[in-house]
Amino acid sequence: MDLPFLINVSWIAPWGFLIDAALRFIIAIGTLIVYLDKTRYDLLAKEQYYRLLAENASDVIYRFKFVPKMHFEYISPSVKKLTGHSPHSFYNSIRLIFSLTTPNDRPILRMFARKFFYEPDHTLILRIRRSDTSMIWVEQTSVPIVNEEGSCIGFEGIVRDITTRKNLEQDISRLDSLNTVGQMAASVAHEIRNPMTTIRGYLQFFANKREFSTYTNQFGLMIDELDRTNLIIKEYLTLSKHRTIDLKLNNLNVIIESLYPLVKADSNADNKDIHMHLSDISLIYLDEKEIRQLILNIVRNGLEATSSDGIVIIRTFQQSDEIVLSIQDNGSGIPQHILDNLGKPFVTTKETGTGLGLATCYRIASRHQAVIKVESTPSGTTFNICFKIP
């Protein structure tokens, strides 16, 4: 730029080169500063973006270090929703995760901790107790963190709530068990009932003989046992039938009211009581015969679970897009090992029960696209059958 004006001034040439060099240096420094500032801005933007993803993900993302001591370097806020405990609780105590793990699954967690160095790419499935004492299933996948020397100094992982998936697996297992029982029933039930009919007939014949009059009670007992066996086989056949249900718009309250005299008489015979609290509800598609069977099975189970002067409460109410039939008893509750397998054939708390009544109820609910939810405490059990409103 100064060349046209200073071309004839000989002594200015060296200074011109210096000025030129200084300007180039200043421009280079300015360009570098702008580049570095833009790079820093981009890194901050990406860090904010990734932090936003981590902190708003439904899965828990964490980073655990072994050095200089074992500690959580980072754990996403979603752990609060998953476990009920804040990230700071895990920062303050790494033992918290062991205390949350159910006692039956703690050996699995210890084995994972020992084998991690040899099998880092390992999926871990555990049951944990949330702060509100409810139990959930979680699945963890993790990858090791390796330093420059190739040593493992920690791991990063993702923890996901898989309770819904586990419940679905249990439902599939329950349906598979029902189908197996149905196939067994269809193949052998008739073959068993035919000789039983013959035996029952001869027992009645001999019971009427004068020379066997002293054994009348024994014959009656044998006939009663045969009738009970026949009832079990009948329940088998109920499970085996792939019947087409006759769905019609019905009022659930009307069905319950028609059953009330029957269950009321049943309860009075054992010095127990039944209360009804029916709310105004919408019409839903039901097969009346099957719903009657479902209600009778669960109500009678409730009556048998209560002691003398026990009470069973039948409620109906509407919430959002569902009609809920609630049957509550004040018995001693259902043990956890039974509750986990409720609805499977042969699972029962009764000494003389077959374990097929509730299996039939779950099958009926499945055919009506309904869901059975069970809440049990030492002070009673509640069955909530949730029907979708069309």
Rank of each mutant, 00 (worst) to 15 (best):
E139Q: 06
T216S: 10
I323F: 02
I192K: 05
G182V: 05
A365I: 01
T101Q: 03
D329C: 03
F346K: 13
I385R: 00
P390E: 15
F206T: 14
I334C: 08
S173L: 14
I136D: 01
R130N: 02
R367V: 08
D227M: 08
S267P: 07
Q336E: 15
L249Q: 07
N167Q: 13
E351I: 14
T306D: 10
I311H: 02
D161H: 02
S366D: 11
K264C: 13
L178Y: 01
K350F: 03
R165S: 09
F212H: 04
P195D: 12
D132K: 01
S151M: 09
I33A: 09
G380I: 01
I323Y: 01
E290C: 06
Q328C: 15
S131I: 09
K344H: 13
S151N: 07
M1N: 08
L231K: 13
A185P: 04
K81G: 06
L109M: 09
D59R: 02
N251G: 05
E156P: 00
R114N: 04
K209T: 12
T198E: 15
V9E: 12
D224V: 08
K65Q: 15
E149W: 04
S187Q: 14
L168W: 08
V9P: 08
D287V: 04
L339Y: 03
S99V: 02
L126G: 01
S142V: 08
T83R: 00
D246S: 13
N179Q: 14
I338H: 04
L239G: 06
F112M: 08
